[in-house]
Nucleic acid binder design. Structure first.
Lengths: 226, 226
DNA sequence: CGCACCCTTGAAATTACTCAAGTTCAGTGG
DNA sequence: CCACTGAACTTGAGTAATTTCAAGGGTGCG
């Protein structure tokens, strides 16, 4: 795999490596493609690799004592998942694709060796860990604070990211519930509300065009006056 | 500061260092003591140090658009806070003491240098990042899932940790609310409920003796049949 | 066709929030 | 020594939000 020519090189773990550093990668970087509902790894698995997400969207899931799933965060291109193996831990989540996904599998040995033999991995490693913590914090403050309406609005804004059209692919209602800590039914009702209020419009199967301004207002707790 | 003889050495960032590695620490490790309600750093501050918590309990806080605080996690002895500076980021939280606290201030330069010059910091660095992510995930799945009753029970169990007496110092109600995503009043009512149900008993100013079994049942959603 | 899997909606029940008032207690100043 | 104050805690009553339980609708697939 030609990491040095990777299309999203500036986003990934190897962003800062120099030409000579790539010689230190003595094990192949595998590219893995998988479809929605397929799992990349499961909670508790002993892993020996981290994964850089090149394309698609994954959910990181943990399971509650009663067996229901709790979505801990959503991760997309540029994110690295499975970092816990670098700390000698088994995977802490089940990682499931929500959209067709493409990831690079990087063996732990490769990361360990690079960190030992070049000073240029360290900063990105810190950056990727930091991004994980940050995302976790955001999930808490944005997607689990306030009313169901506010959380939903913030979720849409998250998924929109910086899509110029203001459109995004949405999630199955059950996943929305597991992410926002509400029931599937509530998730459903709030989406229906948003449609009625004109905040979002469904243009295809779970493909939404959104009104950023309106959503931002809803995220702050304002209710549109119809 | 004599890190090599630190009383909680096995818990901290320098756990794996060898005798000769300590020579690489060219800047003093400062010990900082501070009292409840004092802040170690503020969100947005540019920092150049991470902190190992030796004693006490801190809350990491973020502020919502409307100015209210959201407690993102509680950290105690052994935890390292401010790791984000290693990724070149300003502090992402305000860190406030809830109990008299003692922390060690470790300059970023020291960590960077150690990582460059000895292979033995890496593992603990990964471990400390991992612990941060883990704690964040736990906050989400344990303290922000289920009814107010369940969350409160889990909070007590967290604070108990492995105290042999089953007693712990509790938080101000407002902090409980900001941590569990409920209002101060609800926090108050649930604590009162727990007292009535005999799950906890207040033995001093916010010092509680707890019934672990009962709390575990409450955490699963069972209501005691008075 | 019939089943499985989502999504959707309704009505009743529950939970948590809001607003308002009362309490306790430590600290302060007369 | 005692009222006064502020901060935190507590409780009640009414209201709003969410869940629960139940049922109906759509679509794809064997």
């Amino acid at each position: 795999m030609e990491c040095r020519n990777c299309g999203i090189r500036e986003l990934v773990l190897f962003a800062d490596l120099h030409e000579q550093d790539f010689a230190l990668i003595h094990l192949p970087i595998e590219e893995i493609r998988f479809e929605p509902s397929a799992a990349l790894f499961h909670v508790g698995d002993d892993g020996d690799a981290v994964f850089t997400i090149r394309d698609g969207l994954l959910k990181l899931v943990q399971y509650l004592p009663d067996g229901t799933q709790r979505i801990v965060r959503l991760v997309g291109p540029g994110a690295v998942v499975g970092l816990e193996v670098l700390a000698g831990q088994p995977y802490q989540h089940t990682a499931v694709a929500l959209q067709p996904a493409l990831v690079c599998r990087i063996r732990q040995q490769v990361v360990d060796r690079l960190n030992r033999e070049t000073p240029r991995l360290y900063r990105q490693l810190m950056a990727k860990w930091h991004a994980s913590v940050n995302l976790a914090d955001e999930c808490l403050t944005e997607l689990n604070t306030g009313t169901a309406r506010q959380r939903m609005a913030r979720l849409f804004l998250h998924l929109l990211a910086d899509d110029p059209d203001g459109s995004c692919r949405f999630l199955r209602r059950e996943d929305v519930g597991a992410l926002l800590s509400v029931t599937t039914e509530t998730a459903c009702r709030v989406v229906a509300d948003f449609k009625r209020a004109g905040l979002v419009r469904e243009e295809g199967d779970n493909l939404f065009r959104c009104d950023r301004g309106g959503l931002r207002a809803a995220a702050l707790g304002e209710r549109s006056a119809d």
